[in-house]
Design a protein around this nucleic acid. Structure first.
Lengths: 172, 172
DNA sequence: CTATTTGCAAAATGTTTGCAATCCG
DNA sequence: CGGATTGCAAACATTTTGCAAATAG
């Protein structure tokens, strides 16, 4: 639930809210907000900072918790609203890893996932895994798939073995 | 929202609740319930009947509405509880077609789906579409995928064309 | 008879919205 | 200053749960 906390906590505390962006990509994200006519607010800046500070997928709630380390009053609805805006601008995307809440990450980090329906372990997979599916979807239906938006559910090797131990009549 | 309504409404009205099962598969589903020690109640019978009467995916709410045509007091929580039990017994499976509610259908009718993220049109796809993905998931990770549990999101041909008309910078 | 199942209402979960107060530019 | 943005609380949508009353076997 923490994650990007310590590294830039110090910066915030020592310099008010002069959060120094760490890279070009982060600067570009801020530019995109400005170009879209969006104002540069504290919750907005902190959210962008959190997204770039630690990569990986985090839920809106997790992001809110990180942000609240620095600005305790930032509400989850503001986080949702800003994630929506960043998604509209192409900076972030959201991903459904299973039955729980959506997770958010930088659009540049998008990739596919396998998730075990039993133990919920996640495996990141390369886009090449979907090459055949993509080709067929276009060829047969003109469909341009985005196989990274929903994870592909399944059973990992360990849980398959467990299921066999019990007899697999309930394997569905 | 209706669907399996008229055909067996007549049967129900003319013969109390002597809903005559229409096929072997339906009989087998009822047997499975009995074998599992489950009691044969009216909501249970009606749900099974509805599931077999019309194929296709329906949400719990839609199924409840159909059932309530005959037994108005059946509550949605009973429908959820019985769907859960039928899923445990391998009779039905649930499927997520996008951001809305889950849909339920007979396990024997499971297949993959493409869903357009914009117009939400759905395309049913053959299991062969996933052959390559399945093979790679097993080979590289020992993962047995179930690509029919979550639809694959994308953009249909029409919506791709629309996006190009507008310039596709917001295509994410 | 009694354990299972039900209906209802309430809780839980995840996300969105209405609105007055606040803040950016 | 004036409109964009926020925080809060309440609404929303879907699914789950607690519990007393009903019912199958």
């Amino acid at each position: 639930m923490a994650g990007c906390a310590s590294p830039f906590a110090a910066q915030v505390k020592s310099a008010g809210f002069a959060l120094s962006p760490s890279g070009d990509e982060e600067e570009e994200a801020l530019s995109r907000l400005r170009s879209a006519g969006d104002r540069m607010t504290t919750p907005r800046r902190l959210l962008v900072r959190c997204l770039f500070e630690a990569s990986g997928h985090r839920t809106a709630e997790e992001l809110a918790a990180e942000i609240q380390t620095y600005a305790p009053d930032v509400s989850i609805s503001t986080v949702y609203r800003n994630l929506e805006e960043l998604e509209r601008l192409g900076v972030v995307v959201h991903l459904h890893l299973g039955h729980g809440p959506a997770t958010y990450h930088l659009a540049t980090e998008a990739h596919g996932h396998l998730v075990c329906r039993k133990c919920e372990i996640q495996v990141e997979i390369a886009d090449g895994f979907f090459a055949d599916l993509r080709r067929r979807a276009i060829a047969d239906f003109g469909f341009a798939i985005d196989p990274r938006h929903f994870a592909v559910i399944g059973l990992c090797a360990t849980c398959q073995a467990d299921a066999e131990d019990l007899g697999d009549s309930t394997a569905g």
